[in-house]
């Protein structure tokens, strides 16, 4: 029994009037505190799987269990960080970060206290009153991560959150993400198409097949942290994963 369990998840989409199988029996057991990265070719259903885990989409077969309880709706126990952040432009940074707490009816003083902690962790304190149009893409993703962490979810679901960042900003956030994970001991499922990113972050990396998505192979990454992108000792891991991934991308 793991923290989050996926049992035989299948999903179809309607394409040109015909059902198209997108996920083909995803069986996965994520242990408490694990950092699982999913890599796969585009269109392999990795984002769909994450959305099903978040309860934003329903599977056609199978179920998701959290602490052994089957789930069929979305909720703050599994918070999703979206690819483009999905920050609310009408709220400033602090109000964005506090949104989920406010919805939950937590009083203002308590909210401020919690948000300050995470704004500080994400080095956003001086931007607390800024609006999203005043922030760089990297800053926006920091806010999105802070907004997710504030909810103290059981599982953090991250959908290519660093895909739109420049290389320097991404390297910085990849290191910070590891520190946050070590500090908060969160269970994280992280979807990416970038193998180097997966190897830096994951305790385990899953390779999805081309559509319909299945788990082709998984790799344990036992290596000291924080891992940095220049570390050549990570290359053999990347090469092994790429060897599995390459034929799928070409399909």
């Amino acid at each position: 029994m793991g923290k989050l369990e996926s049992r035989n998840i299948e999903k179809y989409f309607i394409h040109d009037g015909k059902p198209l199988k997108t996920l083909d029996g995803i069986d996965l057991n994520v242990e408490d505190g694990e950092f699982v990265c999913i890599v796969g070719p585009s269109g392999c259903g990795k984002t769909t799987f994450l959305r099903i885990a978040a309860g934003l989409e329903k599977p056609d077969e199978g179920q998701i269990l959290l602490d052994n309880q089957p789930l069929n709706n979305t909720g703050p126990d599994r918070i999703m960080v979206f690819q483009e952040g999905a920050l609310f432009p009408w709220l400033n940074v602090q109000d964005n970060v506090e949104y989920g707490l406010k919805i939950a009816g937590i009083p203002k003083e308590k909210r401020n206290q919690i948000s300050h902690r995470y704004l500080d962790m994400m080095q956003l304190t001086q931007f607390a009153t800024s609006y999203t149009y005043q922030l760089s893409t990297g800053m926006k993703q920091r806010v999105a991560i802070a907004r997710a962490l504030v909810m103290e979810p059981d599982v953090l679901l991250m959908d290519e959150p660093f895909a739109a960042l420049d290389a320097q900003t991404r390297d910085l956030l990849l290191v910070e993400m590891q520190l946050i994970w070590q500090k908060t001991k969160k269970t994280i499922i992280f979807v990416t198409h970038n193998v180097a990113e997966a190897v830096m972050l994951g305790t385990r990396v899953l390779v999805f097949t081309h559509r319909p998505g299945r788990i082709k192979k998984e790799f344990k990454i036992d290596y000291k942290r924080p891992r940095i992108s220049e570390d050549e000792n990570l290359l053999p891991y990347q090469q092994k994963i790429l060897a599995e991934l390459r034929p799928e991308v070409k399909k």
Binding site: A54, G55, L56, T74, G75, P76, R78, I79, M80, F82, E84, A86, F88, W90, L91, Y99, G100, K102, I103, A104, R147, M151
Partner: peptide, 29 residues
């Protein structure tokens, strides 16, 4: 409205009534 706003809000626990005042109206403003 960008569907991600609605999904993010529901994901963080917003109910339909809260969705209207905290997301739909400001996002459509």
């Amino acid at each position: 409205i960008n569907p991600s706003y609605i999904e993010a809000a529901r994901n963080m626990g917003a109910k339909e009534g809260q969705l209207i005042t905290s997301i739909l109206i400001p996002a459509a403003f």
